[in-house]
Every structure is written in C-alpha cells, then in structure tokens.
Design a binder for these strands. Structure first.
Lengths: 210, 210
DNA sequence: AACTATATTAGACCGATCGTCTAATTAAAT
DNA sequence: ATTTAATTAGACGATCGGTCTAATATAGTT
C-alpha cells in the first residue's frame, strides 16, 4: 500500500529483505494467526514477531501499540472474511440457500486444515471482550453488522424465490444465523470435529425451508 | 462436606475464621466469578485469593494445582447451572416451550445483573479451549452433553403435546439450541444488551412452532 | 565528501505476574 | 512435653508484558 519496489527505500534496510509495507503485512498476518488461536490477551508480541523473523525492536516502529496492532489485525480478518462471504453469497450460479451451504463447506475446510485450533477470530475475540479495549469492541460490532447485512440479502433472495416463508424477518434470521454459526464454530473447536457445524447448518436449513 | 463445626479443628486456625471446607468453597466460588469474567488463562490466583481474603500460601494446601482448581470450578458451575435448568425445564406447571422461555428470562436477569461482563462460564472456556488442559476440555464436553440431554427431553415433551412438528429430531435440535444459545450470550456481552438473546429465543421459537 | 533525514534494529528496561514450594506458626491430640 | 495436623507467610525463579532509547545503515542533499 505504502511503498512499492520502484521507489528505493531509505534508511537501514530490513534484515528480512521485505520493504516496509510487506513487513507490516507480514506482522498483521502473523497476528491474525496468533489472535485467532490464542486470543488477544494471551498472544505475546514476541511470538508474533518471531514467526515472521522481525526483531522485537521493530514493533513500535510499525505500530503505535498493541491496541493499534489489534485494530489492524481485526480489520485484515474482516476484509478477508467479507471477501470469502461475497464469493459464496453473491455467486449467482447457485440458489441462495445453496450459497450458504457452500460458504459453510468452505469454512469447514478451514477448520479441519488448522486442526480445529483456530476457528473465527471475530467470535474468539467476542468472548474476550471484557479484556479488550473499547476500540476493538466497536470494531467487532461493525464486522458483525456487515456480515449480518450480507446474510440478510441472501435470505431475502431465498424469500423472493419463495424457498423460505415470506413471514420470516430476514434481518432477525440473519442475526440468528450468525449467533448459531459462532456457537457451532466454538463447539467444533471443543469437539475437534465438524459435527457441530453440520448439525447447525442442517437444522437451520430444515427449519427455514418451506 | 469435609468437616462440620461439631468436630474441633486441628492445626493452625484459618485467619478468616472459616473451616476447611468453607474456605475451599469460597475459593471455588471466587474462581467461578473470575474465570467467567476473564477466562482461565487471564485469571490470576492472586486475585482469586484476595477476593475471599485467603492468603496466597494457602492455595496449594487446598488445591494441587491451578488445573485441579479449574476442575473444581467447572464442576461447581456445572452443578449450579444444571440445577437452574431443572428448575425451569422440569417445571410441570408450565408448557414445555414456556419453560424454555422462563429459563431464558432467568439467564437474562443474570446477564444484566453483572452488567454483561460474565455470561456463561462453559461458553467462555469453550472458546479458550486451545489454552486449556485436556481434562478441562473433556469436562466441558460432559457438561454440554448433560445440558443437551435436558433440553432434548423438554423438546420431546413439546413434540408429544404436538406443539412442534413430529418430524424434528429433538436431539439435533437441542444441540442446535445450545450452540445458538452460547452464541447469543457472547453477542450479548459484545452489545452490552439483551437484544441478541431476545432475538435468538424469538426466532428459535418461531421456527420450531407448528 | 560531509552531512542530514529516514528507516530499521538491538537490546535493555522494569514492573508485573505467573504458579509453586519450603519453612514457620498455631492448635489439637497423645 | 511431644507429636501430628492444618494453615500461613513470604520468597522463589522464571517468564514475559509492552515500551523506549540509542545505535546502525541507507538514501537524499549540499
């Protein structure tokens, strides 16, 4: 975002060979991993730095504080997830409810790939909210609002298709979906298998189908 | 459990005046509060002790380790919650679905009373499972299994009454309920209001009603 | 070539815990 | 008086938290 390789870099060069924005991005991605697995409070800056071979002294060059770093991490994940969501929920080659199923399958893959250790950053931090700075709390709320909006649209499409009853309030149903979703991800972390997610999706679809 | 006031206490008397089992119980209750609000990893033994005026040196007299203490804390909460659940779900003066509503209202009171800072110990620890000893993980699974069984029975009652469709698998539905429930408690902590819980219960009941 | 500005790093800083343990203290039992 | 049991005092070393200052290395400027 900041500098590209056409402009020569001033200052002492990074040990890693990355330029400024690459290093920043690498740190954020490492943060996503650690925060998703261990939460904000229990993740140390040391580990996060070590993973991408950035020296400790550099951290406060790139970020003003752990809080500021957290904001960047949440933002990164939010963008990543919103993209994934659009990929499935706006895929016009599939019917609306099928899009939800596809999204769930995508997420299930991720759960298994990381051995059920990660789950959803937003859901994990949500539980930790009592230990988080207020800025993070608001950011999490924003993120959920975006996801909810996307899901609402998808459900409305299903409604227009007459796949689900017209009597349903799609906004409330979308909120309901995400609460159950986060619950199922958490349960899946606990059981270390995909059964909870499957149960959630199956029952959800069965309940809303006409 | 251990000693009552009829048998005189040997050894140096506790500063607090409590006997052995009272002190242990006080520690466990303090642990419930802290673990529920801050999780296992972020709760310090010091704080837990201070809250009930038990000196630090005493901790390892009462518990073999923090892990063992955690087991006692989870057990205490599980019992407490199972009792609350029975109180509502087995209350024959109400129809099955009304019992669920009453349970939810009870829980909502608790959420508000603690200013949305605590929520559900089991749900909170569930998210933290990556940082927990395996013994805790299994205990959490057990606890959920018990809750799920209780809810299954209640839903089956509703089914027998013909309040909900006979086509529903009550076991799956109970699992679904608890995932959504935990999700709604977490969301309620985030929003600092009861709207998520209300939405969850409302939509759930609407979806399963005939 | 000397100097300034900028970018990055090295590594220490200190306070706060962390969970645990050993020795001392206090009382009842013998 | 001595032993046994229960509780406490307080230190223990280790880790690690987030942060900061000074040193280093490059590019731009004169």
């Amino acid at each position: 975002m900041n500098k590209n390789n056409t402009t020569p870099q001033r200052g002492r060069p990074a040990k890693s060979g990355r330029d400024s924005s690459q290093t920043k991005q690498a740190l954020v991605q490492s943060g996503v991993q650690y925060f998703t697995e261990f939460g904000f409070a229990s993740s140390g800056i040391d580990q996060i730095l070590k993973k991408v071979s950035v020296p400790k002294g550099s951290f406060y060059h790139y970020f003003a504080s752990k809080e500021a770093f957290g904001i960047a991490v949440i933002e990164e994940y939010s963008h990543y997830f919103a993209k994934k969501l659009d990929l499935h929920l706006l895929n016009e080659t599939n019917k609306p409810l099928m899009r939800i199923v596809n999204f769930a399958n995508d997420a299930k893959e991720g759960m298994a790939r990381y051995n059920f250790k990660r789950g959803c950053l937003i859901g994990n931090l949500e539980q930790e909210v009592g230990l988080l700075p207020e800025s993070h709390r608001l950011q999490l709320l924003d993120t959920f609002a975006v996801w909810q909006q996307k899901m609402t649209c998808c459900l409305q499409l299903a409604q227009q298709e007459n796949t689900i009853p017209a009597s349903l309030d799609c906004t409330a149903l979308a909120s309901f979906f995400w609460m159950g979703w986060e619950g199922s991800i958490a349960k899946s972390k606990l059981t270390k298998n995909l059964t909870p997610i499957d149960t959630f999706i199956d029952v959800f679809l069965q309940l809303i189908a006409k």
